[in-house]
């Protein structure tokens, strides 16, 4: 009885003028409405309205890309929350770590979640790359999306690496000292890169601030941008890769030629 009443209230809300003005697709369970739910939504319209059923099987993708995106969203949320209690300065940054641990409500939990999600994201991004390779999904016409994926892997590693300095503990300081010294091994411009990266000759307050800006603004923006391209290209390149149902293409030229010829489609 109660449930029915609630359901009808929801129906009423979804039929209202306000709801319709926000969600252009309107309500309904028809194929048209469900297509519109994707197509008429600014965030979802980079996805195709339809997918092959076989791609939803767990063993087709192991959902590794979806999971990587999931960790990224989790990191954005926990990261923004952590920013409310973090000062990127020496030695306040370390004191904030102690505060998060012992003083801030749920601070310890949020920091843990951010840290472990970051590790999970690196692991999942690598797993996703190897999975895509072993399924052969990098082949034309999807070659550029593979490149976008490599860029995203690098952004992930850089995000994780810049975040590593922020606690300003011994682990952070020496990992970044060693890592940034690698950049000075670059021939000719190495010391300049090192100086620019740290904003000085030593891992110091300047370096902490630079890494903070990279970690919280520049790299996440780059990640969001490339993730959008990555998803959009899945749709444009013909959906997720399905073995067997796609013609075996051995060269890029073949894939391009296929797109230009009329295909005879046989229903199974």
């Amino acid at each position: 009885m109660q449930l029915q009443k609630q359901a009808s209230r929801l129906d009423k809300l979804m039929a209202s003028r306000l709801w319709k003005s926000i969600f252009r697709s309107g309500r309904g369970a028809s194929t048209l409405h469900r297509s519109m739910a994707i197509q008429q939504n600014v965030f979802l319209h980079i996805l195709p309205t339809k997918v092959r059923r076989r791609m939803l099987n767990f063993d087709a993708t192991w959902y590794l890309g979806t999971l990587t995106l999931g960790t990224f969203l989790l990191l954005v949320i926990t990261g923004i929350l952590l920013m409310f209690y973090y000062h990127p300065s020496v030695p306040q940054a370390y004191a904030d770590m102690k505060d998060l641990r012992y003083v801030v409500s749920s601070g310890l939990f949020l920091r843990n979640l951010h840290r472990w999600s970051a590790h999970a994201m690196v692991l999942l991004a690598f797993a996703h790359m190897f999975r895509v390779f072993y399924r052969g999904a990098y082949r034309p016409p999807r070659e550029f999306n593979w490149v976008v994926g490599v860029i995203l892997l690098l952004v992930t590693l850089l995000l994780s690496y810049t975040g590593y300095l922020l606690p300003w503990d011994q682990l952070a300081f020496w990992a970044i000292t060693v890592g940034s010294n690698i950049s000075s091994a670059v021939p000719v411009v190495g010391h300049k890169i090192h100086f620019l990266l740290l904003g000085g000759n030593l891992v110091n307050a300047n370096a902490l601030l630079r890494f903070y800006v990279l970690h919280t603004v520049i790299l996440p923006l780059a990640a969001v941008l490339f993730i959008a391209v990555h998803f959009w290209r899945i749709r444009k390149d013909g959906g997720l890769y399905v073995q067997q149902s796609e013609p075996a293409r051995e060269t890029a030229e073949e894939a391009r030629a296929d797109e230009n010829t009329q295909q005879v489609v046989v229903k199974q």
Binding site: F195, L196, G199, G200, N201, L202, N204, A205, N206
Partner: peptide, 12 residues
């Protein structure tokens, strides 16, 4: 940008 990003005074 290069000039801006390289600090002129260091507190080292």
């Amino acid at each position: 940008a290069y000039q801006y990003m390289s600090p002129n005074v260091l507190y080292e």
